[in-house]
Computed example of a mutant assay.
Amino acid sequence: MTADLDIVAAGMVTAVGLDAPSSCAAMRARLDGFQETRFLGAAGEWLIGAPVPLPRNWMGAKRLAHMAAAAIVEAFELIPEARGRTALILCLAEENRPGRLAPDSRQLLTQIEQIAEIASPIASRVITHGRPSGHVALEAARRLLASNATPFVIIVGVDSYLTSQTVNHYLARGRLLTPANSNGFIPGEAAAAILCALTGGAMRLTGIGMAREKAHIYNEMDIPFRGDAMTIAYKEAFAGSGRLHSDITLKMGDLVGETYWFQQCALAMLRTQRERSPVQPIWTLGGSLGNIGAAAVPAMLGWALSAVQHGYAPSGPILIEASSDDGACAAAVVEAR
């Protein structure tokens, strides 16, 4: 589907930087924020994680609220006229994920609005689909802007896998990276915000697609995994942008480290690319930040915006993809103005 809107500003709080410029520079340099955590693995070893080095040791929902508010304030500092004229869409972890730091989404939203001093002209919205939440938020933002309900929409994603219940849940299922398991992810946390408008940005969203995979990572029915949903998402995004897969010059993905997600990306590419093209580089967040959940898509869009503004992104359309454990898959195409 078509999804014309501009990305005009971004803010980030990550394990490699407390603002967008430092975070994007660190990810460009392939630096990481990995360190030993207070969590123990099955063999008694310290697990590796990617915590955000906040100036104060906030815990629980308060930690998420301060991270999200910092990202929002940074975006507003770049576009001060957006204050008081911006609708807020908050992206959070799946409601059924064990160990969510903020089980009451509305209460967290209120905390964020108070800390960031946001006065939204319309009711704020919460989306709880984990990593693909940002794509759902982009479609909601497109509709809000197209209806002239608000001149700006800010999408903020905040998430953390660094809780004991979450770590134990994924450790028990063999999904964390440990000395005994190379097919796992590193738990992380982050917040990222992108400010959207109809015009005025250096980067434009031109297409978006979404679908649901039946053969998801917890597939217990032994359905053959062919990457059907991500293939559909790719095709919808390409159709909306008027582009072919061979036109893409850069891919950005939430590939957190497990082979399932790389296989999904490869299958979708094999089933949608029909023309020869140069090798398309893939930039991933997992190598620097670990698995940051619902903050992934805003972070990738912010990184893409920085790369476009500073001239180190390849010239041409950028494909941004994300998917979740329950099979939700999404892809978007963005291009420099």
Rank of each mutant, 00 (worst) to 15 (best):
T2I: 14
D4N: 14
L5C: 14
L5S: 09
D6Q: 14
I7S: 08
A9K: 06
M12W: 07
A15Q: 03
V16W: 03
L18M: 10
D19R: 06
A29S: 15
L31A: 01
Q35G: 12
E36H: 13
E36D: 15
E36G: 14
R38T: 13
G44Y: 10
W46G: 11
L54S: 03
W58C: 01
W58R: 10
M59R: 15
A70Y: 00
I72M: 14
F76I: 11
E77G: 14
E77I: 03
E77M: 12
L78C: 05
E81M: 15
E81F: 09
R83P: 10
G84H: 11
T86N: 11
T86A: 10
L90V: 15
L92T: 13
E94S: 03
E94C: 02
N96V: 07
R97M: 03
G99Q: 09
L101T: 02
P103G: 00
R106N: 11
Q107K: 11
Q111R: 06
I112S: 03
A116P: 12
I118C: 10
I118L: 15
P121K: 01
A123M: 11
A123P: 09
S124Y: 12
R125L: 15
V126A: 09
I127R: 04
G130C: 05
R131D: 06
G134C: 09
L138E: 05
S147G: 14
N148K: 11
F152K: 06
V153K: 05
V156Y: 08
G157T: 05
V167G: 08
H169R: 01
Y170S: 06
L171Q: 13
R173A: 01
G174K: 08
G174F: 10
R175T: 06
N183G: 00
P187I: 09
A192H: 05
I194L: 02
L195F: 11
A197W: 07
T199D: 14
G201C: 07
R204F: 10
G207K: 13
I208F: 03
M210L: 12
M210V: 11
M210D: 00
R212S: 04
I217G: 01
I217H: 04
E220W: 02
M221K: 15
D222Y: 07
D222R: 09
F225G: 01
R226H: 05
R226K: 06
M230T: 05
Y234M: 04
E236K: 13
E236P: 01
A237Q: 08
A239T: 13
G240S: 07
G240Y: 12
L244Y: 09
S246C: 14
I248G: 02
T249K: 14
T249A: 14
K251N: 10
M252D: 08
L255R: 04
G257R: 05
G257W: 01
W261C: 00
W261P: 00
M269F: 04
R271E: 07
T272E: 00
Q273E: 13
P278H: 10
P278R: 14
Q280L: 01
P281D: 10
L285N: 02
G286L: 02
G286P: 12
L289M: 11
I292A: 01
A294K: 01
G302E: 07
L305Q: 08
S306T: 15
V308K: 02
H310I: 07
G311C: 08
P317Q: 08
I320N: 02
I320S: 05
S324A: 15
C329P: 07
A330M: 04
A332Q: 06
A332E: 07
A332G: 13
A332P: 11
E335H: 08
